[in-house]
């Protein structure tokens, strides 16, 4: 059994109609790491993320979370993961507080712990006064914050985020980055996709660049960017791909 928090080995996913979204993709995320997943639109980032979270089935390869297979031990894997999709479609007929309570119930978080963590993160993201309102009345950013609070309340071992900074105000983005680092310091791992390359470069310990479903660059941030920037690396890869 490996000690990787997330291990993707030769993941392949082909959509009905024949489009291969992910092609033999392999990567590893270790405990304590913030791992950035970069790629253009349609590169296969969301497909990979959804496969990791057990939201979407895949055709080939294996994915393990904390040593457990997402296919055969789906429930155990999901207990360790917090997944924040790019467009958090939460239950609009619930209040934010009710939604967080639902997630806490499903993860079996004790009353005292959930109360304390909800209060802490609600204050951090400026949601104390809004959690009693219906989610249907929330803005995109407020939904994003509610999804984040609900995810943090059960102290995930692996946090998977698809474009987490979209829709967040600068203050919330600042706090989210701090929380991500705090979680990793406590032994969890973060795997997230983003188009904001500056943020990825500053925040991530490791990075992977995906293009047309294939990994084109992967490694520690310093190794990948060298003396340049992540944007330079990304654009160089893009040009190389166009020339092919």
């Amino acid at each position: 059994m490996s000690n990787d928090m997330l291990c993707i080995d030769r993941l392949t996913k082909t959509y009905p109609g024949g489009k291969r979204a992910v092609d033999a993709l392999s990567l590893r995320v270790r405990p304590g790491e913030i791992y950035g997943f970069i790629g253009h639109n349609g590169a296969g980032k969301s497909t990979t993320i959804r496969a990791v979270c057990g939201v979407m089935d895949f055709d080939g390869g294996t994915i393990t979370v904390d040593g457990m297979d997402v296919r055969t031990q789906a429930l155990e894997c999901k207990r360790r993961i917090a997944y924040i999709p790019d467009n958090p479609d939460l239950y609009e007929f619930m209040t934010g507080r009710q939604y967080i309570a639902l997630i806490a119930d499903l993860f079996g978080v004790a009353q005292a712990e959930r109360d304390a963590l909800t209060a802490r993160y609600a204050a951090m993201f400026g949601m104390q006064d809004s959690l009693g309102e219906l989610i249907g009345a929330y803005s995109h950013g407020m939904k994003q914050k509610t999804a984040l609070i609900a995810a943090l309340v059960h102290k995930p071992r692996l946090m998977v985020l698809d474009e987490p900074f979209v829709g967040l105000d600068p203050e919330a983005s600042f706090h989210l980055k701090a929380v991500m680092r705090e979680l990793c310091d406590a032994g969890s791992a973060i795997f997230f996709s983003t188009h904001v390359l500056e943020v990825a470069q500053k925040l991530c310990d490791r990075v992977a660049i995906i293009r047309a479903g294939r990994l084109v660059a992967e490694g520690a941030m310093q190794e990948v960017v060298g003396s340049g920037t992540l944007e330079d690396v990304f654009m160089t890869e893009a040009q190389a791909h166009e020339e092919q």
């Binding site: 609009e92 209040t95 507080r97 009710q98 309570a101 806490a104 119930d105 978080v109 004790a110 009353q111 959930r114 109360d115 104390q128 006064d129 809004s130 959690l131 009693g132 309102e133 219906l134 989610i135 249907g136 009345a137 929330y138």
Partner: peptide, 16 residues
């Protein structure tokens, strides 16, 4: 649109 009441429901929800 949803209805924002301006006065949030802060009641604690029991764990079940």
């Amino acid at each position: 649109a949803g209805t924002m009441r301006g006065r949030s429901d802060t009641r604690r929800i029991r764990a079940v």
